[in-house]
Nucleic acid binder design. Structure first.
Length: 270
DNA sequence: TGCAATGATTCTAT
DNA sequence: ATAGAATCATTGCA
């Protein structure tokens, strides 16, 4: 009876429950806001994942595949141990039965033996579970760390972002709507736009000299655009050559004026 | 292969 | 919540 109850426990969830919870939480896709959720672990996972909701389905399926692989290995190993345990148990039982001819063996003794064997195998299975959990955790941390799969934005996207940045140099903080539009134009996410502007502001401020050339380039670019726009608006289609961006025009974007000033960077080196 | 550029994350302060 | 700052990890070029 004891033997059966032990086996019953082994075949069921209890030790397995932790693992299942683990990869359930990993597979959770929606990752909605803070739910009433089961355990603290689930909540923590949700909070961690909330930071990087980027629907990169390719990476995700890759991740799922690896997770499935881990689980498969785990289950085959588990089955192997289970089988070995059973085989060994019957082997011992046979031995005991053989011995019972020469000496009396109480059922209690048999029970004790079986119990010992199962405890041993159980601890081995525990180790297996533990290492599997570790593998899953490593996989998870790798998946969540987007730095590992960073890709540079396309040149076109960078161009668009830079154009906005340098034409709003006095206040390079795009509104939510502006961010959305930029994201759409650049084929990136809104949070990527936010990241870009965060990085750009700090790096520009840190070393304006390094960005001076770039600033002039984009200033000239917007100047040309503005000039053309003004020209078009006025219907003043004279034979002006567009290659000479004039300065000091009335229709200028005001932010260009900040290019050579220290408005957006009172950098104090100390 | 070393290094600067760059996108993303984490931490702190407001 | 958000910006700034520091830092991490990868990319791409000389």
């Amino acid at each position: 009876v004891l033997c059966l109850s032990i086996r019953g426990v082994q075949e069921e969830d209890p030790p397995d429950a932790q693992l299942m919870r683990l990869d359930n939480m990993l597979l959770a896709e929606g990752v909605a806001g803070p739910e009433k959720g089961g355990g603290a672990a689930v909540a923590a996972a949700a909070a961690a994942a909330a930071g990087s909701i980027t629907d990169n389905s390719i990476e995700h399926s890759d991740y799922r595949a690896k997770l499935t692989q881990i689980r498969q290995i785990y289950h085959t190993e588990l089955e192997k141990y289970e089988q070995a345990c059973n085989e060994f148990t019957t082997h011992v039982m046979n031995l005991l039965r053989e011995q019972s001819r020469t000496r009396p063996i109480s059922p209690k003794e048999i029970e004790r033996m079986v119990n010992i064997i199962h405890r041993k195998f159980s601890s081995i299975q525990m180790q297996l579970k533990q290492s599997t959990c570790e593998a899953v955790m490593i996989l998870r941390s790798r998946f969540l760390d987007a730095r590992r799969k960073r890709r540079n934005f396309s040149k076109q996207a960078t161009e668009i972002l830079n154009e906005y940045f340098y034409s709003h140099l006095s206040n390079p903080y795009p509104s939510e709507e502006a961010k959305e539009e930029l994201a759409k134009k650049c084929s990136i996410t809104v949070s990527q736009v936010s990241n870009w502007f965060g990085n750009k502001r700090i790096r520009y401020k840190k070393n304006i000299g390094k960005f001076q050339e770039e600033a002039n380039l984009y200033a000239a670019k917007t100047a040309v655009t503005a000039t053309q726009a003004v020209a078009a608006a006025v219907h003043n289609s004279q034979d002006n050559s567009p290659s000479t961006p004039n300065t000091g025009r009335p229709g200028y974007p005001i932010d260009i004026l900040y290019l050579c000033t220290d408005y957006f960077s009172p950098v104090d080196p100390h």
